[in-house]
Design a protein around this nucleic acid. Structure first.
Lengths: 101, 101
DNA sequence: CAAACATATCGTATATTTGCGATAAACAAA
DNA sequence: TTTGTTTATCGCAAATATACGATATGTTTG
Protein backbone atom coordinates (compact mmCIF):
# COMPACT_ATOMS: atom_id res chain seq x y z
CA UNK A 1 0.00 0.00 0.00
CA UNK A 2 1.00 3.60 -0.41
CA UNK A 3 2.69 4.76 2.73
CA UNK A 4 3.86 7.98 4.26
CA UNK A 5 7.63 8.35 4.18
CA UNK A 6 7.72 8.67 7.91
CA UNK A 7 8.04 5.46 9.87
CA UNK A 8 5.91 5.48 12.92
CA UNK A 9 7.73 4.93 16.15
CA UNK A 10 5.36 3.21 18.47
CA UNK A 11 6.34 2.42 22.02
CA UNK A 12 7.31 -1.14 22.84
CA UNK A 13 4.22 -1.50 24.98
CA UNK A 14 2.03 -0.42 22.09
CA UNK A 15 3.51 -2.88 19.61
CA UNK A 16 3.47 -5.67 22.20
CA UNK A 17 -0.24 -5.21 22.88
CA UNK A 18 -1.03 -4.95 19.17
CA UNK A 19 0.99 -8.07 18.39
CA UNK A 20 -0.75 -10.17 21.03
CA UNK A 21 -4.15 -8.74 20.08
CA UNK A 22 -3.58 -9.47 16.42
CA UNK A 23 -2.82 -13.11 17.22
CA UNK A 24 -6.04 -13.25 19.26
CA UNK A 25 -8.01 -11.59 16.49
CA UNK A 26 -9.42 -14.70 14.88
CA UNK A 27 -12.13 -16.97 16.31
CA UNK A 28 -10.31 -20.13 15.27
CA UNK A 29 -7.27 -19.10 17.27
CA UNK A 30 -9.42 -18.25 20.28
CA UNK A 31 -10.99 -21.69 20.00
CA UNK A 32 -7.56 -23.31 19.88
CA UNK A 33 -6.42 -21.41 22.95
CA UNK A 34 -9.58 -22.23 24.89
CA UNK A 35 -9.02 -25.87 24.07
CA UNK A 36 -5.43 -25.62 25.27
CA UNK A 37 -6.59 -23.99 28.48
CA UNK A 38 -8.83 -26.97 29.18
CA UNK A 39 -6.50 -29.72 28.06
CA UNK A 40 -3.40 -27.84 29.13
CA UNK A 41 -1.69 -29.35 26.07
CA UNK A 42 -2.63 -31.11 22.84
CA UNK A 43 -1.37 -32.34 19.47
CA UNK A 44 -1.99 -30.72 16.11
CA UNK A 45 -4.07 -33.73 15.13
CA UNK A 46 -6.47 -33.23 18.04
CA UNK A 47 -7.27 -29.77 16.74
CA UNK A 48 -7.61 -30.95 13.15
CA UNK A 49 -10.21 -33.44 14.39
CA UNK A 50 -12.17 -30.76 16.18
CA UNK A 51 -11.99 -27.92 13.69
CA UNK A 52 -13.69 -28.11 10.28
CA UNK A 53 -10.54 -26.86 8.60
CA UNK A 54 -7.78 -28.41 6.57
CA UNK A 55 -4.73 -29.68 8.40
CA UNK A 56 -2.57 -27.10 6.68
CA UNK A 57 -4.85 -24.31 7.83
CA UNK A 58 -4.77 -25.45 11.44
CA UNK A 59 -1.01 -25.72 11.25
CA UNK A 60 -0.84 -22.17 9.97
CA UNK A 61 -2.95 -20.84 12.86
CA UNK A 62 -0.70 -22.69 15.27
CA UNK A 63 2.31 -21.09 13.65
CA UNK A 64 0.85 -17.66 14.16
CA UNK A 65 0.13 -18.34 17.81
CA UNK A 66 3.66 -19.65 18.18
CA UNK A 67 5.18 -16.64 16.41
CA UNK A 68 3.25 -14.35 18.73
CA UNK A 69 4.68 -16.31 21.65
CA UNK A 70 1.34 -17.45 23.00
CA UNK A 71 2.02 -21.16 22.62
CA UNK A 72 5.02 -23.42 22.41
CA UNK A 73 5.61 -26.74 20.73
CA UNK A 74 7.37 -29.73 22.22
CA UNK A 75 8.56 -32.61 20.06
CA UNK A 76 6.95 -35.93 20.91
CA UNK A 77 7.87 -37.76 17.69
CA UNK A 78 6.18 -38.17 15.40
CA UNK A 79 3.76 -35.74 17.04
CA UNK A 80 4.17 -32.28 18.39
CA UNK A 81 2.65 -31.33 21.70
CA UNK A 82 1.48 -27.74 21.93
CA UNK A 83 1.01 -25.96 25.21
CA UNK A 84 0.31 -22.42 26.27
CA UNK A 85 3.49 -20.43 26.77
CA UNK A 86 2.77 -19.54 30.35
CA UNK A 87 5.34 -16.79 30.71
CA UNK A 88 4.17 -14.86 27.66
CA UNK A 89 0.57 -15.66 28.49
CA UNK A 90 1.00 -13.92 31.83
CA UNK A 91 2.78 -11.07 30.14
CA UNK A 92 -0.14 -10.68 27.72
CA UNK A 93 -2.57 -10.75 30.59
CA UNK A 94 -0.63 -8.07 32.42
CA UNK A 95 -0.47 -5.87 29.32
CA UNK A 96 -4.18 -6.20 28.61
CA UNK A 97 -5.30 -5.69 32.18
CA UNK A 98 -3.12 -2.63 32.50
CA UNK A 99 -4.28 -1.29 29.16
CA UNK A 100 -7.98 -1.96 29.71
CA UNK A 101 -7.87 -0.48 33.19
CA UNK B 1 -10.68 -17.33 -0.43
CA UNK B 2 -11.53 -20.94 -0.93
CA UNK B 3 -13.57 -22.10 1.99
CA UNK B 4 -14.94 -25.32 3.34
CA UNK B 5 -18.70 -25.66 2.82
CA UNK B 6 -19.21 -25.91 6.52
CA UNK B 7 -19.76 -22.69 8.39
CA UNK B 8 -18.02 -22.70 11.68
CA UNK B 9 -20.24 -22.10 14.66
CA UNK B 10 -18.13 -20.37 17.25
CA UNK B 11 -19.55 -19.51 20.63
CA UNK B 12 -20.58 -15.92 21.26
CA UNK B 13 -17.79 -15.53 23.77
CA UNK B 14 -15.27 -16.68 21.17
CA UNK B 15 -16.43 -14.25 18.51
CA UNK B 16 -16.69 -11.42 21.02
CA UNK B 17 -13.10 -11.88 22.16
CA UNK B 18 -11.87 -12.21 18.59
CA UNK B 19 -13.76 -9.10 17.51
CA UNK B 20 -12.34 -6.97 20.31
CA UNK B 21 -8.86 -8.40 19.80
CA UNK B 22 -8.97 -7.75 16.09
CA UNK B 23 -9.83 -4.11 16.71
CA UNK B 24 -6.88 -3.91 19.11
CA UNK B 25 -4.58 -5.62 16.63
CA UNK B 26 -3.00 -2.52 15.12
CA UNK B 27 -0.50 -0.23 16.85
CA UNK B 28 -2.18 2.91 15.55
CA UNK B 29 -5.43 1.91 17.19
CA UNK B 30 -3.67 1.11 20.46
CA UNK B 31 -2.07 4.55 20.31
CA UNK B 32 -5.47 6.15 19.75
CA UNK B 33 -6.99 4.30 22.69
CA UNK B 34 -4.08 5.17 24.98
CA UNK B 35 -4.53 8.80 24.04
CA UNK B 36 -8.25 8.54 24.79
CA UNK B 37 -7.51 6.96 28.15
CA UNK B 38 -5.38 9.95 29.08
CA UNK B 39 -7.57 12.68 27.65
CA UNK B 40 -10.79 10.78 28.34
CA UNK B 41 -12.08 12.27 25.09
CA UNK B 42 -10.76 13.98 21.97
CA UNK B 43 -11.60 15.16 18.47
CA UNK B 44 -10.57 13.48 15.25
CA UNK B 45 -8.39 16.48 14.46
CA UNK B 46 -6.36 16.02 17.63
CA UNK B 47 -5.40 12.54 16.49
CA UNK B 48 -4.65 13.69 12.95
CA UNK B 49 -2.22 16.23 14.47
CA UNK B 50 -0.48 13.58 16.54
CA UNK B 51 -0.34 10.71 14.07
CA UNK B 52 1.77 10.86 10.90
CA UNK B 53 -1.14 9.57 8.87
CA UNK B 54 -3.62 11.08 6.48
CA UNK B 55 -6.90 12.36 7.90
CA UNK B 56 -8.82 9.73 5.97
CA UNK B 57 -6.68 6.96 7.43
CA UNK B 58 -7.21 8.16 10.98
CA UNK B 59 -10.93 8.40 10.32
CA UNK B 60 -10.90 4.83 9.08
CA UNK B 61 -9.18 3.56 12.22
CA UNK B 62 -11.72 5.42 14.33
CA UNK B 63 -14.52 3.79 12.38
CA UNK B 64 -13.11 0.37 13.14
CA UNK B 65 -12.84 1.12 16.82
CA UNK B 66 -16.40 2.42 16.75
CA UNK B 67 -17.67 -0.62 14.85
CA UNK B 68 -16.04 -2.87 17.43
CA UNK B 69 -17.83 -0.85 20.12
CA UNK B 70 -14.67 0.33 21.86
CA UNK B 71 -15.31 4.03 21.32
CA UNK B 72 -18.28 6.25 20.69
CA UNK B 73 -18.64 9.56 18.91
CA UNK B 74 -20.60 12.54 20.16
CA UNK B 75 -21.51 15.40 17.83
CA UNK B 76 -20.04 18.72 18.89
CA UNK B 77 -20.53 20.53 15.56
CA UNK B 78 -18.61 20.97 13.52
CA UNK B 79 -16.42 18.53 15.42
CA UNK B 80 -16.98 15.05 16.73
CA UNK B 81 -15.88 14.15 20.19
CA UNK B 82 -14.71 10.59 20.61
CA UNK B 83 -14.65 8.84 23.95
CA UNK B 84 -14.08 5.34 25.15
CA UNK B 85 -17.31 3.35 25.28
CA UNK B 86 -17.02 2.53 28.94
CA UNK B 87 -19.62 -0.22 29.03
CA UNK B 88 -18.08 -2.19 26.18
CA UNK B 89 -14.62 -1.38 27.43
CA UNK B 90 -15.45 -3.04 30.73
CA UNK B 91 -16.99 -5.95 28.88
CA UNK B 92 -13.81 -6.36 26.85
CA UNK B 93 -11.74 -6.23 30.01
CA UNK B 94 -13.89 -8.88 31.62
CA UNK B 95 -13.66 -11.13 28.57
CA UNK B 96 -9.88 -10.81 28.32
CA UNK B 97 -9.24 -11.26 32.02
CA UNK B 98 -11.42 -14.32 32.11
CA UNK B 99 -9.86 -15.71 28.96
CA UNK B 100 -6.25 -15.02 29.95
CA UNK B 101 -6.78 -16.45 33.42
C1' DC C 1 -27.05 31.78 0.41
C1' DA C 2 -21.89 31.32 0.24
C1' DA C 3 -17.61 30.26 2.49
C1' DA C 4 -15.00 27.89 5.88
C1' DC C 5 -14.24 24.06 8.73
C1' DA C 6 -14.21 19.24 10.44
C1' DT C 7 -15.02 14.77 9.41
C1' DA C 8 -16.70 10.79 6.69
C1' DT C 9 -16.76 8.23 2.61
C1' DC C 10 -15.31 6.80 -2.10
C1' DG C 11 -12.12 4.89 -5.28
C1' DT C 12 -7.92 2.82 -5.81
C1' DA C 13 -3.38 0.54 -5.02
C1' DT C 14 -0.81 -2.55 -2.40
C1' DA C 15 0.00 -5.68 1.56
C1' DT C 16 -1.51 -9.10 4.46
C1' DT C 17 -4.51 -12.79 5.92
C1' DT C 18 -7.05 -16.92 5.32
C1' DG C 19 -7.88 -21.10 3.20
C1' DC C 20 -6.95 -25.13 0.32
C1' DG C 21 -4.46 -29.13 -1.88
C1' DA C 22 -0.03 -30.91 -2.81
C1' DT C 23 4.30 -31.86 -1.25
C1' DA C 24 8.24 -32.08 1.88
C1' DA C 25 10.29 -33.30 6.24
C1' DA C 26 11.00 -35.90 10.41
C1' DC C 27 10.59 -39.85 12.84
C1' DA C 28 8.93 -44.79 14.29
C1' DA C 29 8.13 -49.24 13.13
C1' DA C 30 8.38 -53.11 10.18
C1' DT D 1 15.63 -49.45 3.81
C1' DT D 2 10.85 -48.98 3.01
C1' DT D 3 6.39 -47.73 4.80
C1' DG D 4 3.23 -45.29 7.57
C1' DT D 5 2.25 -41.41 10.57
C1' DT D 6 2.28 -36.70 11.77
C1' DT D 7 3.14 -32.09 10.96
C1' DA D 8 5.15 -28.15 8.39
C1' DT D 9 5.74 -25.68 4.26
C1' DC D 10 4.86 -24.28 -0.58
C1' DG D 11 2.11 -22.28 -4.15
C1' DC D 12 -1.87 -20.40 -5.28
C1' DA D 13 -6.56 -17.87 -5.07
C1' DA D 14 -9.75 -15.03 -2.77
C1' DA D 15 -10.86 -11.94 0.93
C1' DT D 16 -9.70 -8.39 3.92
C1' DA D 17 -6.88 -4.60 5.77
C1' DT D 18 -4.21 -0.48 5.30
C1' DA D 19 -3.07 3.72 3.26
C1' DC D 20 -3.68 7.66 0.27
C1' DG D 21 -5.92 11.63 -2.33
C1' DA D 22 -10.20 13.35 -3.81
C1' DT D 23 -14.70 14.28 -2.85
C1' DA D 24 -19.03 14.47 -0.22
C1' DT D 25 -21.50 15.71 3.97
C1' DG D 26 -22.97 18.43 7.68
C1' DT D 27 -22.59 22.50 10.47
C1' DT D 28 -21.36 27.34 11.76
C1' DT D 29 -20.48 31.88 10.43
C1' DG D 30 -20.56 35.85 7.50
Amino acid sequence: MKRSIEIINYTKETTDIARFAKALGHPTRITILMYLENQSCCFTGDLVDILPLAQSTVSQHLKELKDAGLIQGELKPPKIKYCIHQENWNKAKELFVNFLK
